[in-house]
Write a protein that binds this DNA or RNA. Sequence first.
DNA 1: GTTCAAAATATTCCTTTTCATATAATAATG
DNA 2: CATTATTATATGAAAAGGAATATTTTGAAC
Lengths: 147, 147
Amino acid sequence: MSTQHRFVDGYLLYLLARASSVASAEFHDQVRASGVSVAVWRVLASLKGTDGLTIGELASRCLANQPAISKTVDKLVGQQLLTRTTDPDDRRRAWVALTPQGEARVDELIARAQEHQDRLIAAIGIEEIDTLRTALTRLIDRAPAKK
Amino acid sequence: MSTQHRFVDGYLLYLLARASSVASAEFHDQVRASGVSVAVWRVLASLKGTDGLTIGELASRCLANQPAISKTVDKLVGQQLLTRTTDPDDRRRAWVALTPQGEARVDELIARAQEHQDRLIAAIGIEEIDTLRTALTRLIDRAPAKK
DNA sequence: GTTCAAAATATTCCTTTTCATATAATAATG
DNA sequence: CATTATTATATGAAAAGGAATATTTTGAAC
């Protein structure tokens, strides 16, 4: 008689995590296949179109914590994809920016991301995607702010 | 003149990851504060309401990979929250299930998750949440299947 | 201008994850 | 039924991530 009620089935946070995971899986495989971790991809992509971000801003945008980003940035500076510059006006701050090589690298990845997104939109339908975008944006804006 | 076009701003996979992260942050803090990692919470929650799952099924539902789940399950068996039983009909398979203690533990967490979700729904609005649920479910169903 | 609090990043230590592969069991094929 | 392929899980070494804290710098209060 009982209608197999499993908690996770209707749980919104699970739906969100699962949707993100499922939708990203294919592209993330491509990213890794091109020799870049998802974490690194996020760092590079977040910097594209900016004049540089601080470590803290970058961590926030990459959905990662600060020590993780500090370490990733170190590595990428070592690979000459990023520069790190101490802010002269506030020497606590470190500005991180793409090098020309970093730009080149991220441009390739963004092109693939765009293609992937185009395929996803084609598969799902643009109205559906727009509905989703709107709902996600509202959720992000209204969810309790971190800290 | 240029309308600051940053790639990530409109990128669907980023919206999904960010929404998931933002919406989950508060509850995940609660989970960790109660002495359980998010990974463990997912394992326990996934098992609730089942008669047991195989390692592989569990990994898939927890959005994790198989070795990670094998190890997490080991740990939880050690803590007597789970049992692991070899399938007699296919001795490759291992069935994982909650112990009574595991049930008790996950029941508490589920109660808190439910409360959190209720607050989230109150903050966002039920129609908006339903729209989101529908859109996420469709995305999950239609996105390219893993492998 | 000292002293104290707050902010940004770095560092350390430890846990977890990941990648590749090994092992074991079953299924399929000739 | 012996051989090969496939499937499910385990294992091990390396990388990444996380929590707590240290360090450095700035800002505030008096």
